[in-house]
Nucleic acid binder design. Structure first.
Length: 865
DNA sequence: TTGTAGTCAATACC
DNA sequence: GGTATTGACTACAA
């Protein structure tokens, strides 16, 4: 609770000291989200009053009151008085909303967090307010309150920065989802420290370079509220909090080291996940086992051990095996982490983590050391090393860059290009681009940059290159840069990640390049982040991309799991899904495009295969080593080579009560249940809660299961349709090229492209089965007549309209149950065709629903399809 | 509250 | 042992 307040105090001080200038109740508003009382939104008209208000009042209250001088009402109070601040009147609500939206977008702050922490409103309310702000004159007193808050929120960048930190703390890593209960506390501390560090950074930057990198955010005041005193105060608070936390830990652990605290537990979880994220190639846990073999049998109460570490890492950790990635191959930067050394093998991980991990949360566990660390940073915070820390090496490697990391980077960099080397490589073909941490990449050689960012390259090759800073010149990637097709000498954005695939021994990762022709570079390559690269990327042909990836993987006998975890940061299942059913580029969100961009760059890596091969070998080696160790310790090894299996098997699961390793029981719907659900879907793709209840009751399922099923089914139907349309379009084009006009593309759809793109026979059969199932539904369902688009089923622009028109076309014979039995004769009976129809029909229902829904809207401009 | 996108992870399947 | 499927979940937005 108090931890939560620490970070927010910054926000509060600047926010409410100006806006509210009054009671601590007003200040407490900011903290409402965590501890709303039941009366927080009652008709009293007052703002939510958090239960946690009191502890916050202490630090903030006096300052707030002091700054304001004359007492003034709280927002809620002020509304009763009409507002004691003159400019609270006649606000331009649209403008405020616009600015808020702008800032939220700019800082990647979600509406939920904003509403939660600033307005005391739900995300939905925030959305409403921002999207459709009412004119001031039409607002009630209560309705004006959010605008008061928003305006005050905008008045000081510290508010925004603080909220951004909160957002970053709350938002899970894209690729790692650690859900430990104590995370919040750790994160709070880390966020505080992060903020403090940033403040130091900014101050130093201001001092050294004039304007802060924060750019326009920093309104007028330069350093804003980030005085040394404030920073010290924050750090002091953080230290106290951590001490308080540590006090709860058993003395032995307490005595051992800071890394043995309970907080460090979760911190290690974070470490694990982020390390895995940063160096997915170092999956083999045997690397750590090699160094700490005795750690295996340790009990959970010994957090300093690898085993416990592993066991503490939930499987949410994206299935990457963790500890070993932290050991060998981890660069040991000179500074920090001094105090993180602990008995056992974990200290090196923490050490590495403290140095390398982009997530500011990493720093926390070291109590005294943390403060020292930060202060040390302040002494150094604009050295090249810290620059690298904040911008370069702390930038997550390619496969696991988080939005949080991106935000941090963006903020630290100010205009994004000051400290980074952004270059539209493809077109301009300038020099190296990977020196994201290099302040003067154009002048410094990669080796220089690397040396600065990776002071301890002797630890092994990974250390040389794992940092996002530029790798040493001897890096295989560096030497191979020029071989990258279309790169014009620019480094592959994969570079930060790719070298980590090299074996920790330091030996180069193989020799020859992948014989396959890399796809042309899609567009600008940046040394910044995947997100920016994605944003700048031109449209990619996801289908071609996945096809190529599949080819490479299969040709080289590389598994999806390996590829997914190492390159994409995804699990095998996700990879399978992506490769089998890639969405068209334009249908993908920024996040959804990420794997494809990664694929693209991976394909361009001439050493891609060698690296994965090396990875594979390492995993096997690790497995064997682990097994050997386990056997010698009397444990059996029944897990996989790495990843979650490893974590599981490495843990003493055989000796633990089942509840500690309880696998989630997966609901498996039976054929009858599915059938019923599909029928229901045909009736109503968007069933009402009542219908869902009924279905759940009839099928003896949980309502959530039914809801999930509908969600999933809708989503998957849509995606299936995309694929089918792509295939149809491709086949139509092929047919056109080969046979001239072929408006009826169904044949080629089913026989040429369909076969070509469908993985296996059984798949066909299965589809046919579903077709049959679907045909019944289609004919009896809402779409009524034939859904078969006998015409060009999927023109490139085929959207809902085209589908719709086809589906509503004249009845067509041969669409009944017998259709799937024929695979080759009548085009209309082709299973591919049927599948397409099925999906179109299902999708049509979806569209109809949207149409109906849209029809209910007043303004046609709001219609959205 | 509802819906979508993206993903995980259990498990079925080959 | 690899891949495909799919129920469940998170994050986010309207």
């Amino acid at each position: 609770m108090s931890l939560n307040s620490l970070l927010q105090r910054q926000l509060m001080q600047t926010f409410y000291s100006k806006a509210l200038q009054e009671s601590t109740q007003g200040a407490a508003l900011l903290f409402a989200p965590v501890h709303y009382t039941s009366t927080s939104t009652s008709g009293s008209g007052s703002s939510p009053v958090p239960l946690s208000a009191s502890p916050l009042q202490s630090p903030a209250g006096p300052e707030v009151n002091g700054s304001g001088g004359a007492p003034s009402p709280s927002p809620s109070q002020s509304e009763g008085t009409g507002g004691s601040v003159s400019d609270w009147e006649d606000m331009d609500t649209s403008e405020i909303a616009r600015q808020i939206k702008e800032q939220l977008i700019k800082h990647n702050i979600g509406q939920r967090v904003f509403g939660h922490y600033v307005l005391g409103l739900s995300q939905g309310s925030v959305s409403e307010i921002l999207a459709r702000p009412k004119p001031w004159s039409k607002l009630t007193i209560r309705g004006k309150e959010p605008f008061h808050k928003m305006r005050q929120f905008l008045s000081d960048e510290q508010n925004i920065l603080a909220l951004r930190s909160i957002q970053g703390r709350q938002r899970g890593n894209i690729t790692t989802r650690i859900r430990t209960p104590e995370c919040g506390s750790d994160d709070a501390i880390n966020s505080i420290l992060e903020q403090a560090k940033r403040e130091l950074h900014v101050q130093k930057s201001d001092f050294s370079h004039g304007p802060s990198p924060g750019g326009g955010l920093r309104g007028g005041g330069g350093g804003g509220g980030g005085s040394d005193e404030a920073i010290r105060s924050i750090l002091e608070q953080a230290r106290r909090e951590m001490e308080a936390q540590q006090a709860t830990v058993e003395p032995s652990l307490k005595a051992s080291s800071s890394s043995s605290t309970s907080s460090s537990h979760s911190q290690r979880d974070l470490l694990v996940s982020h390390l895995a994220a940063s160096f997915p190639a170092y999956t083999p846990l045997a690397l750590s086992l090699k160094n700490t073999p005795t750690a295996l049998p340790v009990s959970p109460s010994s957090p300093s051990t690898v085993l416990d570490f592993s066991s503490s890492v939930k499987r949410e950790d994206r299935g990457v095996s963790v500890p070993d990635r932290l050991d060998d191959g981890v660069p040991r930067l000179g500074r920090s982490s001094e105090g993180s050394a602990r008995p056992g093998g974990g200290h090196r991980r923490d050490q590495w983590w403290s140095n390398m991990n982009p997530d500011p949360r990493r720093d926390t566990p070291t109590l005294g050391g943390e403060e020292n660390h930060t202060q040390e940073d302040s002494k150094e915070a604009l050295s090249l090393g810290s620059m690298c820390d904040g911008v370069g090496s702390r930038q997550n490697p390619w496969s696991k860059m988080t939005s949080r990391g991106l935000r941090m980077q963006l903020w630290l960099n100010g205009d994004l290009s000051q400290n980074t080397h952004i270059k539209p490589a493809h077109n301009q073909g300038e020099g190296q681009t990977s020196a994201s941490c290099s302040p003067a990449p154009a002048e410094g050689t990669p080796s220089q940059t690397s040396a600065s960012c990776s002071p301890a390259p002797a630890e092994g090759t990974p250390s040389q290159t794992s940092a996002s800073c530029s790798p040493p010149p001897e890096s295989p990637l560096s030497s191979a840069e020029e071989s990258l097709n279309g790169l014009g000498g620019d480094r592959d954005p994969l570079a930060p990640q790719a070298p980590s695939l090299e074996p920790p021994s330091g030996e180069p990762s193989g020799g020859e390049s992948q014989p396959g022709t890399p796809l042309p570079l899609p567009g600008p390559i940046t040394g910044l982040s995947i997100q920016e690269t994605i944003a700048m990327s031109p449209e990619l042909d996801t289908y071609v991309l996945t096809k190529k990836v599949k080819e490479v993987l299969t040709d080289n006998n590389l598994g999806q799991r390996l590829f997914g975890e190492s390159i994409l940061g995804l699990t095998q299942g996700s990879v399978s899904d992506l490769l089998a059913r890639p969405k068209p580029w334009h249908k993908l969100s920024l996040k959804g495009r990420e794997p494809f961009v990664r694929m693209q760059f991976w394909l361009q890596d001439p050493h891609k295969v060698e690296k994965l091969m090396d990875m594979k070998r390492l995993e096997k080696k690790a497995y064997l080593k682990r097994r050997h160790s386990s056997l010698s310790d009397g444990h059996s090894v029944d897990g996989g080579l790495a990843g979650p299996d490893f974590l599981q098997s490495a843990s003493p699961q055989h000796q633990q009560p089942p509840q500690l390793y309880q696998k989630k029981i997966r609901v498996v719907l039976g054929p009858e249940e599915k059938e019923a659900l599909k029928r229901a879907y045909q009736e109503k793709p968007y069933p009402s809660p009542k219908t869902i209840e009924e279905l759940a009751s009839q099928l003896h399922l949980k309502t959530s299961t039914v809801i999930n099923w509908f969600h999933n089914y809708r989503s998957r139907i849509r995606r299936e349709l995309f694929i089918e349309e792509i295939q149809a379009a491709g086949s139509a084009a092929a047919a056109k090229a080969g046979e001239g006009d072929s408006c009826d593309g169904t044949e080629s759809d089913g026989t040429v492209e369909g076969r070509h793109r469908r993985p296996t026979g059984p798949e066909e059969h299965k589809e046919a089965s579903e077709d049959q199932d679907m045909e019944v539904r289609v004919e009896a369902g809402v779409s009524g007549g034939s859904p078969v688009p006998r015409n060009c089923t999927t023109s490139g622009s085929a959207g809902p309209g085209s589908s719709s028109s086809s589906l509503f076309g004249p009845p067509e014979a041969g669409l009944s149950l017998s259709a799937p039995a024929s695979h080759t004769s009548t085009p209309a009976r082709n299973p591919r065709d049927n599948t397409l129809r099925r999906k179109k029909a299902a999708n049509l229902n979806n569209i109809i629903h949207r149409l109906e829904k849209a029809a209910g809207k007043e303004d046609p401009s709001e219609w959205e399809f």
